[in-house]
Design a protein around this nucleic acid. Sequence first.
DNA 1: GTACAGGCAGTAT
DNA 2: ATACTGCCTGTA
Length: 284
Amino acid sequence: MSQGFDPVLSINSGQVFLWEKHGNSWYGIYGDHVIRLDEVDGRPEFSSFPELKSCEQKMFRLDDDINKIREDVSRDPFVRKLVKAYPGLRLIRQEPHQCMFSFVCASNTNIPMIRRMLYNLTRKFGAPVKVDGKEFFTFPSAADINRATIDELRACGLGYRAKAVKAVAESIASGRLDFQALKNASYEEAKQELLQIYGIGNKIADCVLLFSLEKLDAFPIDVWIARALASHYKWLHKKQFSDKITAHQYETLSGSTREYFGRYAGYAQQYIYYHMRQNAGKKW
DNA sequence: GTACAGGCAGTAT
DNA sequence: ATACTGCCTGTA
């Protein structure tokens, strides 16, 4: 079931932000829960506070038929190589609201900054949870965040993103955005819903769809993926493009990549993304 | 000081 | 339709 599964590699692959190492354990925030990850006899062992039944199954999508998915995305020779190179990499399933706030904060910045913003949000608006004598903070609910003023959000280091965070909080808290309905909806329908919200564009919508709304065919295109497409998959696109892509280029590229990589395009994206970052020698 | 970092909305062509 | 621009903040 969990063959070749490397949770530490996966949590450090740029999909999730609120994980930190203390001693030999990793601790992560998963909505209202703190997850602890230890290595015991070379095998991962998970604990959750308060307890969340089979949290690793949920988080790391161990319910997916990974062999079938790997085979499916291996239709592409480049991805086939990456599937072999990174056998431990998994997509992470996130809490929709945490995912959405995380990626709204991720626009036009880098991972250390995203982590800082999210830590500040949890400390100001989340609830404290003590684990192993250390204090962690849960991820605040949309209602918690919606109670804050834009200036209070700004004070978390969000900058101009504060307005977008507030808009997301409002649409969730008011019930206008219904995650369950979005899970049931098609990729296109769900994406259109997300795009209505101020601050949510193509890339962030696709991240939320892939990482939290079960749309495994979503294919987020950030600058790294755009670079990969521009160098390895030129033929997918008629016209030249670089890593800075316009909204229209995003649309057409997204359409052709989703078609080409298939129903698990999001997994293919994750292998490519991880590979590009590895090659660039990025420190997470 | 300047450039840049995992986008987006607003405005002008 | 497509191009250009400003935007918070921190680091190199």
